[in-house]
Simulated assay, not measured.
Amino acid sequence: MAKARTRREDRPEIILDAAEALLRRSGSRTLTIDAVAAEAGLSKGGVLHHYASKDALVTALAARKVERLRAGIGEHAAALAASRARMPLAMIGHAREVYAEECGFPDSLLIATAENAEAVAGFRSFLAERLRDLAEIEARPGAGAAFLFAILGLMMSRSLGFHELDGAELDRLFGALEAQARALPEG
């Protein structure tokens, strides 16, 4: 199976997986093309063939994260009945799942992304899409944005190490957000 992953068309994913592993293990300061190449078992030229610079690599990592966010929220939304609460509940459900698995937005990717305008633009675009989605279902002005930024604040503050909530505390917070979403009036 390992040999199948070394095919040329698989290399961009192999490189992104290696970069992600480095970020998780050692942080953004160790993310270099040389380190990614060593982690991926490729030459530096092999990495540069797919990602011309560290910035291009970080942009690709951020784009992959955004796609995973879209897919995760979409999966949760598909499992819910149509209602005003559907999108907030889908976002809360996905955030709860990612938070519990501790595979969310690692602080090192957050730091690397913050230093890369193109990567930041991808996240801004994603957030603008979510705000538009939420505005369409708002029964109360600003309610959708409040859900989004409450979830984002919880996730980012964890990534940055501002808190370490235990399971009961986390469950209580997500439960409160879900209750607020379910309380949105229909109409």
Rank of each mutant, 00 (worst) to 15 (best):
A79E: 14
G74N: 10
V58P: 02
V66N: 03
A63D: 09
V58L: 07
A79H: 09
A52P: 01
K65M: 14
A77D: 07
A63I: 03
A78L: 11
L57C: 09
H50A: 05
D55I: 08
A81P: 13
A60T: 04
I73S: 06
A77T: 07
A79V: 09
R70Y: 10
V47P: 02
I73V: 13
H49M: 05
A79M: 10
H49Y: 13
E75L: 15
R68T: 14
R64L: 11
A60N: 01
T59D: 14
A56E: 07
A60D: 04
A52G: 02
L69N: 15
A78C: 13
H76V: 08
A78Y: 06
A52F: 03
A62N: 04
R70A: 13
A77R: 07
S53I: 06
L80S: 01
A71K: 11
A78Q: 13
R70M: 08
T59P: 07
L48E: 07
A52W: 04
L69M: 15
A52V: 06
E67T: 12
G72V: 07
G72N: 08
A60G: 00
L48S: 03
A79T: 13
A79C: 07
T59N: 12
V58I: 12
E75M: 12
H49R: 15
A77K: 10
L61M: 06
A78D: 09
K65P: 05
L57D: 05
